[in-house]
Simulated scan of single mutants.
Amino acid sequence: MSEFVMVAGAWLGAWAWDEVVPGLRAAGHGVHPLTLTGLAEKKGLAAGQQTHVQDIVDEVERLGLREVVLVGHSYSGIPVGQAAERLGDRLRRVVFVDSSVPADGESFASGWWEGREKLETPIRENGGFWAPLTAADCAGQDMTAEQTARIVGGATPHPGATLTEPAVLTRPLGGLPATYIKCLLDGTEPGADVVELLKSEHWRLVTMDTGHWPMFSRPAELAGILHRTAVGG
């Protein structure tokens, strides 16, 4: 079985996977949710983009993991994609959950759908942090009021440097064994960069009829998809 290292998106920590973990462990996998520097219980610690990449690599090496499935959700697809290529033969697969993907020399902000300045300006105005998730951000994303309250209540300000510093890749991302999970309520098609990557023989696409935070809205379904991804590629 596989060793899952799971990283949630902006504002969130390891706790975001709490309802996904039991299903994977019941299937026999090792599961290691990870909080990135500056978030949740690590709030207040300085972090840049490469800090988050190193967080992931260090966790795999600290635990001596092999047959690793790296899971990155939303923003965290960027550090997860970079970490994946640094794990060598420890990596079994990388799974991007409705996420951004890294491009060498580009940042999360440079791919922001409204344009870079629309993200970088409020970060500057908020002391270098991306303000936490709100209930309005969760509207129409297949979450109950209780699920929305949980995600909003646990959200912490996100270190802005992790969003504005560029990714560093040493080889094409399409060469990695990867699965992209597209959550259809957050847009019916992946972005153009992901569409291009899905042309690779190493990449697979899976869809979920839910919103951008499936670990809250459909945790059992997500756990099942992750299990099948690990055992079947």
Rank of each mutant, 00 (worst) to 15 (best):
S2K: 12
E3R: 08
F4I: 02
V5W: 03
M6W: 07
A8W: 03
W11S: 00
L12V: 05
G13H: 04
A14D: 14
A14Q: 13
E19F: 11
P22Q: 09
G23Q: 07
R25T: 15
A26N: 14
G28E: 15
H29R: 09
H29C: 03
G30V: 02
H32S: 06
L34M: 10
L36M: 13
T37I: 11
T37E: 07
L39A: 05
A40W: 08
A40N: 13
A40F: 12
A40G: 11
E41P: 12
G44V: 05
G44P: 07
A46M: 11
A47R: 03
Q49F: 12
Q50H: 14
H52Y: 08
H52A: 11
E59N: 05
V60A: 05
L63Y: 03
L63D: 02
L63W: 08
E67T: 06
V68K: 04
V68R: 08
V68F: 02
L70G: 00
V71F: 00
G72H: 02
S74T: 13
Y75R: 05
S76V: 04
P79Y: 06
P79A: 04
A83I: 12
E85T: 10
E85N: 05
R86E: 13
D89T: 14
V94H: 05
V95A: 04
S100W: 14
S100Q: 15
A103M: 15
G105Q: 06
G105N: 09
S107I: 07
S110P: 04
S110F: 11
G111I: 09
W112T: 02
W112D: 04
E114R: 11
G115Y: 06
R116P: 09
L119Q: 08
T121I: 12
E125L: 13
W130G: 01
A131P: 08
A131R: 15
P132L: 02
L133F: 03
L133A: 01
A136W: 00
A136K: 01
D137P: 03
G140I: 07
D142G: 08
A145H: 06
A145S: 13
Q147V: 05
A149W: 02
I151E: 01
A155D: 01
A155T: 01
H158C: 10
P159I: 13
A161S: 14
T164P: 00
V168N: 09
V168S: 12
L169D: 00
R171K: 15
L173D: 11
G174P: 00
G175S: 12
L176P: 00
L176S: 08
P177T: 07
P177W: 07
A178L: 07
T179G: 05
Y180P: 07
K182A: 09
K182R: 14
C183M: 01
D186F: 09
T188W: 11
E189R: 14
E189G: 10
G191K: 11
A192P: 09
A192S: 15
V195M: 10
E196L: 07
L198T: 04
L198Q: 08
L198S: 05
K199V: 12
H202F: 12
R204W: 04
V206A: 13
V206F: 05
M208F: 06
T210H: 00
H212G: 02
W213E: 09
P214F: 07
P214K: 04
F216I: 07
S217M: 05
A220N: 05
E221N: 02
A223T: 05
I225A: 14
A230I: 01
V231T: 15
V231F: 02
G232K: 11
G232Y: 13
G233P: 06
